[in-house]
Structure formats: C-alpha cells, structure tokens
Nucleic acid binder design. Structure first.
Lengths: 93, 93
DNA sequence: TAAATCAGTTTATTTTATAAACCAAATAAA
DNA sequence: TTTATTTGGTTTATAAAATAAACTGATTTA
C-alpha cells in the first residue's frame, strides 16, 4: 500500500486538480462554482497547490474586474497520476 | 462531483477498510503490520470505524494473549462502494 | 523476581480543513 | 453624487482530524 500524497488527499484540492487535469486553464470563480466551495477555503487550497508547484496562478483582468487564472504544471500532472497509482493499491479496480 | 465520505477519506481508515473488504476478518496485529501504522493511531481509527458501524470488533484470546478481531459490516461495505463511486467523479480509474 | 515484550488504550500535540471576518475595486441605487 | 451592494478575492480564527507519546496491564523471558 503506497502512501497517499497528503497534498492531494484532500477533497477540495483533489477537486481543483481534477478539474485542471481536464482543461487548459480555469479561473477562481469557475473553480469556486464547480467545487461548491467558499472563496476562503478555495483561496487557501490554491495557495497550497501553488506552494507545492502543482499549479500556476496568474493574476490578470477580465475587463475591469480582477481575474485569477490557474493551470496545472507538469509536476502537478505527475503528482496527480502518482496519486491515482497509489489509490489503486487501496481500491482494487 | 460527489462528496467524499470524510470517514473513509483518511489514509489509515481507508487502508483498514480496504483490507477488510478482501478478507473475512483481520486482527489488530495484522492490520497494524499491513498498514505500517502505530498502535495508538490504529486504535483510534478502528474506534471511529466502529462508532460509524462500518466495522465490528471482537475482543477474544489467542492462547493467553488478547486478540482483537475486526470485520467489515454490510453498512461498511456499502459506504466503501459509495466512496469509490464518488471518487470516480474526481479521477477516471 | 526483575526486566522486557505484547496488545492495546488514553491523552496530548500538531496539522488540516473550513468558515468567518475582512478588504479593495467596481457597479448599482437613491 | 454619495451611499449601498456586489464581486473577487485574502487573512485570520476556530473546529476537527491525524498522529504520536505516554501509559496500562497482562505475559514472557532472563
């Protein structure tokens, strides 16, 4: 049984990573809606993923409004794949 | 994206449940070795799974030594299956 | 019989997850 | 115009969780 990367073994962070695995990029508002999380929680978890180098954040504008865009890094992708591999040692499928 | 049952979304509890899904029963010592956990941590997590009705614990003897045996309940099995179903909304296995 | 080991439990500590409170800019309402 | 209100977040406080350390009470072993 392999260790489950604690950075990914968290509902909200896993959700964010899962979404980012499937798209080029996603902004804060989209992630918030999709994950049904509070802004505070999402902000904290995005920070942790950024610190780990799993995602990249770009702060820009959409018209006059601020817009925080996230995308997964190659390190993040690898970590995600590894997490799935580890998971499979727990749930045989 | 479905909620990940927090009682199962924990490395050690998931490991215990995973093991118990595959066998009739398993004792404390076996679970401790297989999961590579400390006795204290395992004891606490077994307690939580018991409180939730996911596993049943039987305290007996193996010769003169105490022996704590665990087995999964049908409620536990259902919860585990549901957890997997929910997981699949995050990762495509 | 004293020391070590076994099979755990209880308690304390650290770490996390989460929400509440906050802030600055933009828009809407009076 | 100036006062709310909403938007898009961040920071901080708190509740909950994971984990290890310390403990207990039997059983071996030396």
């Amino acid at each position: 049984m392999k260790e489950l990367n604690p950075l990914l073994h968290s509902q909200l962070r896993l959700a964010v990573m899962s979404i980012l695995m499937g798209v080029e990029e996603a902004d804060f508002v989209y992630l918030k809606e999709k994950t049904e999380s509070t802004a505070g929680n999402l902000s904290v978890q995005i920070d942790k993923l950024t610190q780990a180098g799993y995602i990249e954040v770009e702060r820009g504008f959409s018209g006059k409004r601020t817009r925080t865009t996230c995308r997964i890094t190659s390190t993040g992708k690898e970590a995600f794949e590894e997490y799935i591999t580890a998971l499979k040692t727990y749930i045989k499928l």
